[in-house]
C-alpha cells in the first residue's frame, strides 16, 4: 500500500509571529521554522500503516526552499522519499490555491491513501484535506482517531460532539488525522543519517501545468485587507468574597453568556 503524507513547514508555534506590512503575508524569515506539529501525527500514522501493510511512504510538501528541511525530518522519521513543490509563484497561496497545487502534485504520484494532519498551526483552517479530496474526486475520511486498512477498504473512527462515528471508504482515499491517534516518534540518529541518501524530487508550477494566475496571491480567493497587533492582555477582575462571591461569579458568567 502506497501512502502520501502532505506536510507543511510552519513558524514555530511558540514563537511570536509577525506579518509582512507590504503584502500582509506571514514573515517566515523572522522565526524558526518547524514541521507543523499536527503533521507529525500524519507521518507517524503512515509509518505505522506501512509497518503493517508494506508499500512506500512519500512526503509531499509545498513551500519555499527551506521547507525541504521538513521533508528531511519526515524522511529521518522513516519515510521513503519526498516531493517538494517549490516555485516563487506560490508565495501567498491561500487554502484554495494550495489545494489546487497539492491535487496536481498528487496526480503525478501513485497512492492508495493520502494522509493529512487536521490543520496547520499557522493558518488553522482545517479545509485543505477536504478541498484536495474534492479536486481529486476521492472519498474523504476526516478527523480520524484510528485508521484501519483491510484489502481495499479504509475504516476510520471519529469522535464528535454527539458520539463516535465509524466511517469507511474504498481506496484510494484521503484521510486526515487528529492528535489523539498516536505518539509520533523522534527521528533516531540512524534515521537522520539514512535520510541524507533518500530521494527528494522538486516540482515547479510549470512541471504541474499550473499557471501563475491559478496560485499564489493572484490565484487566492481570500485576501488580508488589514491587520492590527493583538491588544495587550487586560488584567483579570478580582472578585472579593464578602459572603456573596458565588452570586458575583454567576453574574459575571451570565454577563459573558457562559451560563
Amino acid at each position: 500500500m502506497n501512502i502520501v503524507v502532505c506536510v507543511k513547514q510552519v513558524p514555530d508555534s511558540w514563537a511570536e509571529k509577525k506579518l509582512n506590512p507590504s503584502d500582509s503575508t506571514l514573515d517566515r524569515d523572522s522565526v524558526d521554522a518547524v514541521m507543523n506539529e499536527l503533521d507529525e501525527y500524519a507521518v507517524e500514522e503512515a509509518l505505522v500503516l506501512q509497518e503493517a501493510h508494506g508499500g512506500e511512504v512519500t512526503i509531499l510538501t509545498m513551500g519555499p526552499e527551506k521547507a525541504g528541511e521538513t521533508i528531511r525530518k519526515a524522511l529521518s522519521m522513516g519515510a521513503d522519499k519526498g516531493v517538494h513543490v517549490v516555485d516563487a509563484g506560490l508565495h501567498g497561496s491561500d487554502a484554495v490555491a494550495t489545494s489546487a497545487v497539492l491535487a496536481k502534485a498528487l496526480g503525478t504520484l501513485e497512492w492508495d491513501l493520502v494522509i493529512f494532519g487536521i490543520e496547520s498551526t499557522d493558518a488553522r483552517m482545517s479545509v485543505v484535506p477536504a478541498m484536495v479530496a474534492e479536486r481529486l474526486g476521492s472519498p474523504q475520511l476526516s478527523f480520524a482517531t484510528k485508521v484501519d486498512v483491510a484489502d481495499s477498504t479504509v475504516t476510520i473512527q471519529r469522535q464528535t460532539e454527539y458520539g463516535f462515528d465509524t466511517v469507511e471508504a474504498k481506496t484510494p482515499a484521503v484521510v486526515s488525522v487528529v492528535e489523539k491517534i498516536n505518539e509520533p516518534r523522534y527521528p533516531s540518529f540512524k534515521g537522520i543519517m539514512a535520510a541524507k541518501k533518500k530521494p527528494v524530487t522538486t516540482l515547479t508550477l510549470a512541471d504541474l501545468g499550473l499557471g501563475a494566475d491559478e496560485v499564489g496571491l493572484a490565484g487566492s480567493w481570500s485576501a488580508v485587507d488589514e491587520f492590527a497587533a493583538r491588544p495587550p492582555r487586560q488584567a483579570g477582575s478580582v472578585v472579593k468574597d464578602e459572603g456573596d462571591g458565588g452570586v458575583k461569579i454567576a453574574e459575571y458568567l451570565a454577563g459573558q453568556k457562559f451560563i
Binding site: 528531511r72 525530518k73 523522534y186 527521528p187 540518529f189 537522520i192 543519517m193 541524507k196
Partner: peptide, 12 residues
C-alpha cells in the same frame, strides 16, 4: 546537517 538534526531532536 546531521549533527544539527540530532542536536535539535534531543533538545526537543
Amino acid at each position: 546537517e546531521e549533527y544539527e538534526a540530532l542536536r535539535k531532536t534531543v533538545a526537543e
